[in-house]
Nucleic acid binder design. Structure first.
Lengths: 245, 245
DNA sequence: TCGGACTATTGATCAATATCAATATTCTGC
DNA sequence: GCAGAATATTGATATTGATCAATAGTCCGA
């Protein structure tokens, strides 16, 4: 068997514990199919409509997945973080349904659908991890559907801010994601200006602090009240209320 | 090994071809863990916030998955059709993040997370089918995010109508789904009245026909133009345009 | 076949948020 | 440190779709 140059680090397809139970040959076989790639901020891994051949596992950094209307309106479907998969939507599809663009420096492993299929068939432990990852992503997506479908602008922004907390950093520390106002707007189905106004209002009410390139949550409890329902969908019961209009 | 009473029919966990390659014992083992259940229209399989123990595979009928805000605002996250899984979002979660309610008479198989885990680990063919199903559901969810985030009311309704076509029936026949105006509104993040107005307008413009309990598409092409982008996300390239406001 | 309840349609008005526009701030390359 | 560009803030106004309300159609049981 060929030697392996692929590093073993945290990512759904690469994580150490996945190798438990696999033979040395199997491990090498898996590593052989993974192609490790680097991307710079603003660089696209692939674009909406491109023929879909590879699936990507994000090993380091953050991505935004976006879809556009022909007139330029753009929607962020998801922010992907290390450990997540992208492009698996096309497991049976022909073209990528979204553009994947690096927000930070990014390390990703790519693997062809065919290879993935073979590996899954041979390695139940890996397929279990893939299923766990996918189900979490589906949960996230449904959470965004909730936000987009039935929340007001302040509720959306508060939901967005709270959803960033688990992405890293202590609850009262700086949030670990640097999106522009425009990008936040594109995620929440709002305009830049509305996001700016809502955030200004939150600052005025001392719910958050916001300087150049950072946001800090000052009053998590009141943000949660504004949000209306819990951010972590699989969690504690609902809280306080505010009507849509 | 115990005898099997579970019927073998179309559903992700039950489908015939899954059994190809499995030993008789394995097949029996799988069937043993599946619990077949029947539901009537309006009956709930489970409710948002219930402790999540089972995963469901929908074998026959249609379901709506909804999430509510404490003040009663409700969002339909997804319409599930035969072959789809539900509750897998909670593979690692503790409570169901949505309510699953039958729209028609429903047959579903349920299986505990633990059993599913064991079966997946033992049967790569099944995990492959689960992954395919999940990735399709993720694709659907992202498509709804697009609709909710960047479309106008007429665009949303046209997208909704077009998305029903592949669910069955020929392109110019009656649509196979009977949702009330209220339910369509809850799916698209609109109100009953707005849906009604848009549909009335579509009828006036001879794009659709709509009688008691049925909708028929008369002019697919113009509906697609209104929709702006394609319904089938993994499909042909974009078409004509209309701006959001 | 009637009566009540639910669902859909239609109209008038309102309000949240988009749009348009101007200014301020921050970032970048030189 | 400066000039230009990009990003963010703030204000004035417009517009989509919500809300409130009344009417009409449909379904269902008695």
């Amino acid at each position: 068997m060929a030697t392996c140059s692929c590093e073993v680090k945290a990512c759904v397809l690469c994580e150490d514990r996945l190798y438990a139970g696999l033979s040395k040959d199997q491990i090498c076989q898996l590593r052989e199919h993974l192609i490790r790639e680097l991307y710079e901020p603003r660089e696209a891994l692939f674009r909406e409509g491109d023929p879909a051949t590879y699936l990507f596992a994000l090993r380091h950094g953050q991505l935004k997945l976006t879809s556009s209307m022909p007139d330029g309106r753009q929607q962020i479907l998801r922010i992907a973080v290390a450990g997540q998969l992208l492009g698996i939507e096309t497991f049976k599809g022909r073209t990528y349904p979204f553009t994947a663009e690096a927000l930070t420096d990014v390390v990703a492993c790519k693997i062809s659908h065919d290879d993935l299929r073979n590996i899954i068939e041979a390695n139940p432990a890996i397929s279990l991890r893939v299923i766990e990852t996918l189900s979490h992503e589906l949960d996230q997506a449904e959470s965004l559907i909730r936000d987009l479908g039935l929340k007001t602008a302040p509720e959306k922004v508060s939901s967005f801010l709270l959803s960033l907390v688990p992405l890293g950093g202590d609850p009262n520390g700086d949030l670990p994601l640097r999106l522009s106002r425009r990008e936040i707007a594109e995620m929440l189905g709002l305009t830049e200006e509305t996001v700016s106004r809502v955030m200004a209002d939150f600052v005025r009410r001392k719910l958050i602090e916001s300087g150049r390139g950072f946001i800090r949550i000052l009053d998590r409890k009141r943000l949660e009240e504004i949000n209306g329902i819990d951010v972590n969908t699989t969690g504690s019961p609902p809280r306080a209320v505010s009507a849509k209009r």
